[in-house]
Nucleic acid binder design. Structure first.
Lengths: 174, 174
DNA sequence: GTCATTTAGGATAAGTTGATCTTGAACTCC
DNA sequence: GGAGTTCAAGATCAACTTATCCTAAATGAC
């Protein structure tokens, strides 16, 4: 229900927010978020074009958030990578349903509306600040996280042998 | 966010419920729901295997609901055609996150949980009974609907020249 | 200016979903 | 049992999503 690409984008944005102050390179983000590097690269381009992040080429370049984490909602990221298809008119083309959707489509749209509301009311800062929680996306505890990540990146980036995990998406768990 | 196939399945189930008492053929359902007939046929097979509807071959055969509309929830249909992927463990494989998801994944899962709750609490009967509403999926007012549909089907089925509309899915509206 | 670094963009491939077609099997009616 | 009706199943195709690769363009350090 939540696409792979959207999940990737959110991971990336959270990662950049965690390293506020200096840009993250696509390679760094890819390692932390465990997203295939070439694909992440494309995805970052989308985020740049949508104005969610800014990019900077060259040495010490990378990506930074275009907004403060407390201003950037999950919704904005969703909207950037794959705009939600709210149901605004009858999918069957029944004209009389365009003003008032039929009960079925009203409910489907209501479901999407609820998700939209939740996403609109959640900022990246909210995700980072979650009290008592484990750190988003990373093993370490909150305080140590940033330095730990940066250091481990510096190292692992050197030899980054491409480890093809080839993990097949589990088709159903529920 | 809600897949084409799921939408088709719900249209089909609602249509069958609207014609309770006698089976609907795949052809009839396809016309009413405006779903490509061969595809609907495959989809109905899935619903049969999942136990949402029963099928009957031969003259006067077709599909009927396996449960009363007031017992059949939208959720059961969802679960039959494409089981929701709730997030039960950390998608990044971080072991310490499996018991308590990180804030990001917790929120994504929460969004899905909300939708699940809404779908679980809505039955097909609810959809049909919506007060004051237009009839699900069809132009006519509630009382006239059933006969009108059946009759118009009898006619249009005769000459049903395959009209290739080839309507491209509108990529984004929101 | 040159070089290492880093993003941008195009072309392409693999995998999944959406859609079609054809044949076979079950059922009703006569 | 034969004819007409209707679902079942397999093979196939098209479109979209996910993923990869390679080359170009921008940037900063020297």
């Amino acid at each position: 229900m939540i696409s792979q690409t959207l999940e990737y984008a959110l991971r990336a944005v959270v990662t950049i927010a965690q390293h506020e102050g200096h840009p993250c390179t696509a390679k760094q983000i890819a390692e932390i978020t465990q997203v295939p590097a070439p694909y992440l690269s494309k995805l970052m381009q989308r985020l740049v074009r949508a104005g969610v992040v800014h990019s900077q080429r060259g040495l010490h370049g990378g990506f930074v958030l275009a907004e403060e984490p407390c201003e950037l909602t999950i919704w904005k990221v969703v909207d950037a990578v794959e705009p939600f298809q709210r149901i605004h008119e009858c999918p069957l083309g029944i004209k009389s349903h365009d003003s008032t959707l039929c009960p079925l489509h009203r409910r489907l749209d209501r479901a999407m509306e609820m998700v939209q509301e939740l996403f609109c009311s959640t900022t990246i800062a909210d995700v980072l600040a979650e009290p008592g929680a484990v750190t988003p996306l990373c093993q370490e505890k909150k305080t140590f996280m940033i330095n730990a990540n940066i250091k481990s990146l510096k190292h692992s980036a050197e030899e980054s042998g491409k480890k093809k995990t080839k993990k097949k998406r589990t088709p159903a768990a529920e």
